[in-house]
Design a binder for these strands. Structure first.
Lengths: 129, 129
DNA sequence: AAACTATATTCAAAAATCTGAATGAAGCGC
DNA sequence: GCGCTTCATTCAGATTTTTGAATATAGTTT
């Protein structure tokens, strides 16, 4: 109707704790859905739903690579806006919380964790996430 | 619960067309409720409700002067955030729309309109808004 | 004090959103 | 092809938000 509907819709998609967490998780670059699912400790279907919401609003875009789908933030200015919101609310250690992730088995994380579990897995060929 | 609740709540109070309009109306300085009511073309109770919402969230503060109550934005950084949201959504002429106001009878507007209606009012002593 | 004006609050119905379960679709390796 | 893995969609119940009406509060003027 009026010109306030566009920014309203945009702000509404941001105004959700899990979606905020997803956006912050993408601050360092693209991530696959399985990584984000491990991060949120939610069911995959739920995470996919929220990602779809963000995607429809144009905040994130996806890229398919084999079985995996990688999401990225389309416009880095979004982070400037989120930072402003945090500054205004006095929220702290958001970045730290976004990084909290216990043992995500996705390939990206596996590379970082190196070989803590050296050859302990029976089914090492299993690339499950 | 987690540290995303604060910014989420903050963004939720922003994510509303009429509340956005109210904030933009206050960009030029404080305004009385009667002025804002005329601007939104809504019932006074509704406007007061939305103002109360913004006030509880700490985005605006009020000042009583006689019968009237004047509202102001507490932190100008809010406008930077709103501008960022508009830029990201490609919203235009927000400022112009915020100024659209047909014949508000509040004292501030009356002063601007000068004496277009020169002595036509029967009850000139009546300061109704 | 009485009448009037400006603003705030309460309450319930309507609308939108959130959440989770079930299910669907598509790529990969054997 | 078949089974497995990753991700997406649909659907319905639960919860929250939105909206408007009625009503209350408080200052002003006479």
């Amino acid at each position: 109707m009026n010109s306030f509907h566009l920014p309203t819709h945009f702000l509404k998609t941001l105004a959700h704790p899990e979606r905020l967490r997803l956006l912050y998780a993408l601050r360092g670059g693209e991530e696959c859905v399985c990584h984000l699912t491990a991060l949120l400790r939610r069911r995959q279907a739920y995470v996919s739903q929220q990602l779809g919401f963000l995607r429809q609003a144009g905040l994130i875009a996806d890229r398919q690579a084999g079985l995996r789908v990688y999401y990225r933030v389309t416009d880095a200015r979004i982070f400037a806006l989120l930072d402003a919101a945090n500054a205004l609310t006095g929220a702290k250690n958001i970045a730290a919380e976004a990084r909290t992730l216990a043992a995500c088995p996705c390939p990206k994380c596996a590379a970082k964790q190196s070989d803590r579990a050296h050859g302990k897995r029976k089914n090492s060929r299993r690339k499950q996430c």
